[in-house]
């Protein structure tokens, strides 16, 4: 264990997000006691009141959507040696970027109703690396505790954390789940046949974004019998077209496919488009 004096100081900050990721950290129970042995938590709203401006590692939660946010984030960057994006909003724009593809006025109306004109938010929600350099990412909505531990452990050891670049299917297969696309073969077959015969599926089909989503969550949603919504964001080089075709083949309409992809991938899809 490190002597008291050299323990790195850790602070947590939140922007536009639900603080669900900080909650995950606060809920770590024994693990948090181990964490406190290796770091000093100096700023953590979920569990403490005192604040400090002196910290080494800043965990930042939430996406950035106003000038004021951006300034505050830049201040954090100046203070911290390491800035780590905590959770999908900070890491990939997350669920806040769902509105990136929608007309801004509509979003403002829907979210803030009558208060809409008082808010001077940007028309897109950005991940923190769109504003400052980021040293590490903890993906997920919410984050996975083991991965959080791994990222902290890696930072403290001066190594790059080992974050998967492969899709959720890898973990899903290791867990021997029945694939979402194999849960209801009769319905799927009927859908696929209808799509071939009539050009459109009989009814809305199954969907799973696992094949294009970055692994690291141990495929937890599929393990629990639901499906992957893509909360950890796209893998580095997704074959989006091929997977959209798959979803359409299984019976999702084009609009449904776009909506599924926009739930978490909004910002990343923009980025990919700009790269091309």
């Amino acid at each position: 264990m490190k002597p008291e004096s050299v323990k790195p100081k850790v602070a947590f900050f939140d922007f536009a997000g639900c603080e669900g990721d900080q909650l995950q950290v606060a809920n770590m129970e024994e693990k948090i006691l181990d964490l406190i042995e290796v770091v000093d938590v100096v700023n953590f709203r979920e569990i403490m009141t005192e604040r400090s401006e002196d910290y080494d590692i800043a965990f930042v939660e939430g996406s950035i959507a106003t000038d004021h946010d951006a300034e505050r984030l830049q201040g954090i960057r100046e203070n911290a040696s390491w800035v780590v994006a905590l959770g999908s909003c900070a890491a990939i724009g997350g669920i806040n970027s769902i509105r990136n593809s929608q007309p801004y006025d509509l979003v403002q109306d829907r979210v803030y109703g009558d208060d809409a004109d008082k808010i001077e938010a940007w028309d897109v929600a950005k991940p923190i690396d769109a504003i400052v350099d980021v040293d590490g990412y903890v993906y997920g909505c919410p984050i996975n505790q083991d991965e959080f531990v791994h990222v902290v452990e890696s930072l403290l050891q001066g190594k790059d954390p080992n974050i998967p670049t492969y899709p959720v299917c890898v973990e899903c297969k290791m867990n021997e789940n029945v694939c979402v696309f194999a849960r209801n073969p009769e319905k799927n077959a009927a859908n696929i046949k209808a799509a071939v015969d009539n050009g459109s599926p009989a009814e809305s089909g199954p969907f799973c974004l696992g094949p294009v989503t970055r692994a690291g969550c141990d495929s937890q949603c599929v393990n629990e019998g639901t499906t992957c919504w893509g909360c950890r964001g796209l893998v580095p080089n997704p074959n989006e077209n091929a997977h959209q075709e798959v979803l359409e083949k299984y019976g999702l309409s084009v609009d449904e496919v776009i909506n599924k992809f926009n739930l978490y991938f909004g910002w990343q899809q923009e980025e990919l488009k700009n790269e091309q």
Partner: peptide, 12 residues
């Protein structure tokens, strides 16, 4: 062309 590089065909 449509490969998702998901590794399923290896893992199983």
């Amino acid at each position: 062309e449509d490969c998702l590089s998901c590794g399923t065909c290896n893992l199983v």
